[in-house]
């Protein structure tokens, strides 16, 4: 266990072993993940690509501990998480992950500050420290002027930057980004991507789904999926 754990911690932050996800649609089985064995190195930047229905979202959900595998193993930092219960998975997400979504997924009733503070709230931080951290993160993404605004008053690019600030609040190990530039124009998308590259340079592991090859080009490694399987892997970053 210890040797394995060490190797997991040193190099591979995430490992999938014959990972399968099967959806039963009536009497038809859909292999959303059809047996994938793959590992992601700590500090790497992955772009997951592939046609619609190839299993990208399913892959992200499994890796992000939002969904269980039907069979196979998912080892996260040396720990098999396939068998963990809902509370433990929530705890893992809270401590290790940051999520960035295509449609930003900010809570519209809450101010920018409150949105950024959300992970800290569940981590049990007090109001004072949370506010300080939210301010720091807002500065990092260039939105310190907007802390008291509501998301609806912001542009798409600004909303995504709030989402990034929120994803960073808990100092995550891995950032999952599901088409983070999908709802943005090219220039804004580039800005967002530069932020992600910067984070990767600071040592964060980033796993991103994207359709655009010019976006994927920023990632060190590109995983092409097809019919729930790995078609090919490009790059060596």
């Amino acid at each position: 266990m210890s040797a394995e754990a060490e190797s997991g911690c040193d190099g591979k932050i995430v490992q999938l072993e014959d990972a399968r996800k099967i959806y039963q649609m009536g009497n038809q089985a859909v292999n959303a993940l059809a047996g994938i064995t793959l590992s992601f190195a700590r500090g790497s930047f992955w772009a997951i690509m592939g046609p619609s229905g190839s299993g990208k979202s399913t892959m992200m959900n499994v890796l992000g501990c939002l969904d269980h595998l039907t069979s196979g193993r998912y080892v996260l930092e040396g720990q098999d998480v396939s068998t963990l219960d809902d509370d433990s998975l929530s705890e893992l997400r809270l401590r290790l992950f940051g999520f960035i979504f295509q449609s930003f997924n900010l809570i519209p009733q809450l101010t920018v500050q409150r949105n950024i503070e959300l992970p800290l709230y569940y981590l049990g931080w007090d109001a004072h420290h949370s506010a300080a951290r939210a301010k720091e993160l807002a500065e990092k993404v260039g939105l310190e002027e907007r802390l008291n605004h509501h998301p609806t008053e912001l542009s798409g690019g600004q909303m995504q930057r709030v989402a990034i600030a929120r994803a960073l609040a808990n100092e995550p190990e891995i950032i999952f980004a599901d088409e983070p530039t999908g709802n943005l124009d090219t220039a804004t998308g580039e800005q967002i991507l530069r932020l992600l590259v910067e984070l990767n340079e600071q040592g964060k592991t980033i796993i991103m789904v994207t359709h655009e090859s010019y976006i994927a080009a920023h990632a060190g490694r590109r995983l092409h999926m097809l019919d729930g399987l790995v078609e090919r892997i490009e790059g060596d970053g």
């Binding site: 992000g64 939002l66 809902d86 509370d87 929530s90 705890e91 893992l92 997400r93 809270l94 401590r95 992950f97 999520f99 997924n105 900010l106 809570i107 009733q109 959300l118 992970p119 569940y122 981590l123 929120r166 808990n170």
Partner: peptide
């Protein structure tokens, strides 16, 4: 529903 989904994804437990 969306808000609840966000909170859960971020790490809120069911009981929270």
């Amino acid at each position: 529903t969306q808000e609840i989904g966000i909170r859960r994804a971020i790490g809120a437990k069911r009981r929270q």
